[in-house]
């Protein structure tokens, strides 16, 4: 049984959380997608860098087809999936917390220091380690062993964690690959099929991006020579 004091404290916590999320949303915007904005969170020097993925409130007002196109999983489902993958050792940012207030719906997680493959590609960088085949192996592992298809695996959702900079180490980037943003992913049973990349609602069909095709596009054309891909090998 909640006392008046308990209710007052709960309300204070709600107000305080709203203020905290307001403050985060005023800090550096570091990424923006159709479903969410990502903000940097100020942390102490030696601790894990953090960010907040703030789900766009306007998603709630969209039709089911539009919403599912942008964000297939609910934020809770996305957080739970990321938690499971992280616990199983899959290279995805460490999930920290779910925070929900009247105005905000946030997933707090590790911020990967480094670059997306899109940034590396756009700025003419070249990854020498890991190799493309390691990325292929990560996606195969996601599909076969974790039974998950990502379905939005463009260059902006694959990151190289590195302390190097493109300016200084343009042709010799080394690091660790991370897969981010599981908002449109889906759990599968058995082998992934074409069905897993489609969703029909009424007369509308959403065709998500196939994990394999996205990764195959990145395959180096010739070993040692850069093709349309940020991978050297």
């Amino acid at each position: 049984m909640k006392t008046d004091k308990d209710i007052e404290r709960l309300n204070n916590l709600k107000d305080s959380l709203e203020e905290e999320l307001d403050e985060i949303a005023r800090q550096n915007l570091i990424g923006e997608g159709q479903a969410a904005k990502v903000f940097n969170i100020k942390t102490a020097n030696e601790s894990l860098p953090l960010c907040a993925k703030m789900i766009r409130p306007e998603l709630e007002k969209m039709s089911p087809i539009e919403r599912k196109r942008r964000q297939y999983l609910s934020p809770d489902e996305e957080f739970n999936l990321q938690e499971k993958l992280f616990e199983a050792g899959f290279p995805t940012p460490e999930p920290i917390a779910r925070k929900v207030s009247d105005k905000y719906n946030a997933i707090i997680m590790e911020r990967i220091i480094g670059y997306t493959l899109a940034e590396i590609d756009n700025r003419g960088g070249l990854i020498v380690e890991p190799s493309w085949s390691e990325l292929d192996g990560i996606i195969d592992n996601l599909n076969r062993n974790h039974r998950v298809v990502h379905r939005d695996l463009h260059l902006g959702n694959i990151m190289l964690q590195t302390r190097q900079t493109i300016e200084n180490d343009r042709n010799s980037l080394k690091g660790k690959i991370y897969i981010i943003d599981f908002g449109t992913s889906k759990r599968i049973f058995g082998q992934a099929t074409e069905e897993d990349y489609n969703l029909t609602i009424g007369n509308n069909v959403i065709r998500y991006t196939s994990d394999g095709s996205s990764v195959r596009m990145l395959k180096p054309r010739m070993p040692g020579i850069r093709g349309e891909t940020p991978f050297l090998f």
Binding site: L13, F79, E83, E94
Partner: peptide, 12 residues
């Protein structure tokens, strides 16, 4: 309070 803030298993 669970619905407002939930920490991940790894943090807890």
């Amino acid at each position: 309070m669970q619905s407002l803030i939930r920490y991940s298993t790894n943090i807890l």
